[in-house]
């Protein structure tokens, strides 16, 4: 097991950055474990959420940003709801995931591929085109049959369209994406 070095290994600027971006204070966490107790995805996590909080307090940037848990978090906000200290834990997970992406980490590639495909679809059509997103995801990940079992039922209920349905304010949506990208560039 890797040994934590609390002084040299502690990245204070990382803690500060998470604080700034999330508006939350990780020092408030007293490790009661309520976040992990309620988390429905702990079974799949490599690091349970209370330990993510602990590693954050210890400024362990690499270990956190390489963690799979960040990508598996469904942002259900059970942790936020349960936290007796009123920390928005889900928001911290969100911020960490953004950071991981910026640093070029994506420990669960498929999740990132899905997010990217989803956003790409919204950018192009102004809303999500389900069949397109699914096909794109399945092709890119090589998981050709993912979700296929749901297709017949969804089809019969008229929930799947084979052609993208474009919304009225498509250009405006595209502009939102552009503005975000510009800000990202400026931020760098």
């Amino acid at each position: 097991m890797e040994i934590l070095t609390m002084n040299k290994g502690c990245d204070a600027s990382f803690i500060e950055a998470v604080k700034q971006e999330s508006g939350q204070d990780p020092a408030q966490c007293y490790q009661c474990g309520n976040c992990t107790a309620g988390c429905p995805y702990t079974f799949a996590y490599d690091i349970p959420v209370n330990q993510i909080m602990r590693l954050l307090q210890a400024g362990q940037k690499e270990r956190i940003l390489k963690s799979k848990s960040l990508w598996l978090c469904a942002t259900c906000e059970s942790c936020t709801t349960r936290c007796p200290q009123g920390i928005d834990v889900a928001l911290i997970m969100d911020v960490l995931r953004h950071m991981a992406r910026r640093e070029g980490h994506a420990s669960v590639k498929n999740v990132k591929t899905f997010y990217d495909g989803f956003l790409e679809s919204v950018k192009r059509h102004g809303r999500v085109f389900e069949v397109g997103v699914a096909a794109n995801y399945n092709l890119k990940t090589g998981r050709f049959w993912t979700g296929a079992d749901l297709a017949p039922k969804a089809l019969s209920m008229g929930k799947l369209e084979f052609r993208p349905h474009e919304i009225k304010g498509r250009e405006e949506i595209t502009r939102i994406f552009r503005r975000h990208l510009q800000r990202e560039e400026a931020g760098k």
Binding site: Q31, C32, G33, N34, C35, T36, A37, G38, P48, N50, Q51, S78, R82, P84
Partner: peptide
């Protein structure tokens, strides 16, 4: 660790918590 919820199941109470 803390307990996140208690719910009934088959006449018993399931206690779900964390072992930190």
């Amino acid at each position: 660790g803390r307990v996140s919820m208690v719910y009934p199941k088959d006449g018993k109470l399931m206690v779900r918590g964390a072992d930190t």
